[in-house]
Design a protein around this nucleic acid. Structure first.
Lengths: 96, 96
DNA sequence: ATAGGAGCTTTATACTATAAAGCTTTGAAA
DNA sequence: TTTCAAAGCTTTATAGTATAAAGCTCCTAT
């Protein structure tokens, strides 16, 4: 049963989608994620903070055209953790 | 994004495992699920109630050897909903 | 100067999962 | 024969989490 544990931080739908996106493109920004996933500012902000705190993503802030610009990328820890999550998920789903 | 919605009732890890189990065997009992998934009485009880309320499973109580015996089976609605959930999940995971 | 919007963050509320306590029946021992 | 423990749950309380609302800062246009 231990091998069937699903990382809850990643399992949450919005965060799962964030990670999947980052897994594909390596780096993206706040606004793109917001539009892509249809989240509110607050919601996305909180999710990103949690993922950052866990060390799964890195958040970089810069100034572009005099506006703050937040870009996000998956850390190798995040990448590996996601791959493990996927394996667990497959085990949970089994032969179905 | 609508097609990427994950049924939260099914997405919750314990309930997902319950459904996967039922999907495989069609009918099982309370104690088996409890041992198989390593849940407490209370926890399993609550999860089953929610799944029942949603119409995904049917709970039947009977007396076996003078003891109450709770058996559970997946309704066709539950089966179909799970299959849809699986499809959504695949779409969310995409090419990863 | 100030009004409005972009780009977030922080706080509050409402929901949900887990754990603890309780309930009922049976069976065995004192 | 009453009482003690255990099986088999259910209900209630607590603690954690997600979403929504309000707030903050910087910029640009008027």
């Amino acid at each position: 049963m231990t091998s069937l544990e699903l990382n809850k931080l990643i399992h949450e739908p919005s965060r799962l989608k964030i990670i999947v996106q980052l897994y594909a493109v390596e780096r993206t920004d706040f606004l793109y994620l917001k539009r892509q996933l249809g989240l509110t500012w607050g919601n996305l902000s909180v999710h990103l903070s949690k993922l950052e705190k866990a060390g799964y993503i890195e958040i970089k802030k810069s100034i572009v055209n005099k506006k703050t610009h937040t870009s996000v990328h998956l850390t190798s820890s995040g990448r590996i953790t996601f791959e493990e999550y996927r394996k667990s998920l497959k085990r949970v789903l089994g032969e179905t």
